[in-house]
């Protein structure tokens, strides 16, 4: 009697959790299948390399691909040093009972909870209207030069958005470096900074790269923060300067989906764009994962 109940409960739990997992996988599979089925036929070399034509009713999406890649790269260049240095301060240098460190941690946690559209407004208000205007005034530009939406401001806004991801994962990576290695290094007469550079950072590198992967995949897909800070509705020219506006796959998708005069006609383009966006994010992740596993292997077998 009791035995059968126990068995039944076990079975019920197994099927319940299994079902939940299955639902998730199924939803993702359906989305992917739908996107691939609808988009694959329309992704051609021309689609990838041509600018949009016919009032975005035809042509390709090359400017959006380029814009997304450039934006993500700039964002990564901005967020990684700041994030890693902040994490280093928090984990390596701040005394454990430091009030400053506690505040920084609280701020980081709050930053992670802010809706992304707020970042967009923040970017507009802080980077463009405050920093940009200040720069223009200081550098003596008559017309608006920095005080307008541009790829730099969009990248910096995204950097602020992804900062918590980088900080948290870097701190995690630093924590994962065995204390043994630090003490061994110090016991061999290394200074704290030597220990950091020669032991801690190499050990934490795979984890830090994981942070980069997470930040990139988060940032590449975000639309709201770049709405007001640099994304262009339609711009066949590629961005050439840090203050150029740019097209973006995510924004382009949004535009195609909501602004099209003929929804039926743009649907194939929409599918194809979404597919490319997914593939790009995917590829970025893959590259980072490969780098990561390589450094890990190299760290494990490091030659001299």
């Amino acid at each position: 009697m009791k035995h059968t109940t126990r068995k039944a409960v076990g079975l019920a739990l197994t099927s319940l959790t299994g079902l939940a997992a299955f639902v998730i996988v199924a939803v993702i599979a359906i989305i992917l299948l739908d996107v691939v089925r609808g988009g694959a036929a329309n992704v051609s070399w021309a689609f990838l390399t041509q600018p949009p034509t016919d009032g975005m009713m035809g042509g390709g999406i090359f400017p959006a691909i380029f814009g997304t890649a450039a934006l993500t790269l700039l964002m990564t260049l901005a967020v990684m040093p700041v994030g890693v240095l902040t994490a280093l301060y928090l984990h390596e240098y701040a005394p454990p009972d430091s009030r400053m460190a506690r505040w920084v941690r609280v701020a980081v946690a709050n930053l992670a909870g802010v809706p992304s559209v707020v970042f967009g407004l923040f970017g507009l208000g802080f980077f463009i209207l405050f920093v940009g205007k200040g720069l223009d005034r200081a550098l003596g530009y008559e017309e608006m030069h920095w005080a307008q939406p541009g790829i730099l401001w969009a990248a910096l806004t995204l950097a602020v958005l992804t900062l918590p991801v980088v900080i948290v994962s870097t701190e995690e990576a630093l924590r994962a470096v065995p204390l043994d290695h630090r003490t061994a290094s110090l016991a061999l007469g290394a200074t704290q900074s030597q220990t950091l550079v020669r032991v801690v950072l190499p050990g934490a590198l795979p984890g830090i790269l994981t942070g980069a992967v997470l930040a990139i995949s988060r940032g590449a897909g975000e639309v709201a923060p770049i709405l007001f800070t640099g994304a262009a509705y339609f711009l066949p020219d590629l961005p050439t300067h840090l203050n150029s506006q740019f097209m973006h796959l995510g924004y382009h998708t949004y535009v195609l989906a909501t602004q099209s005069p003929d929804v039926e006609a743009t649907r194939p383009l929409l599918y194809a764009t979404v597919l490319v966006l997914l593939m790009l994010t995917f590829a970025l992740n893959l590259v980072a994962v490969i780098i990561r596993s390589r450094t890990r292997r190299k760290a494990a077998s490091a030659g001299h």
């Binding site: 043994d180 061999l188 077998s301 490091a302 001299h304």
Partner: peptide
């Protein structure tokens, strides 16, 4: 607690 480095680099570390 050897470092995740080569045998040589471990000894040469100090």
């Amino acid at each position: 607690n050897p470092f995740p480095k080569s045998i040589f680099e471990n000894v040469a570390y100090g």
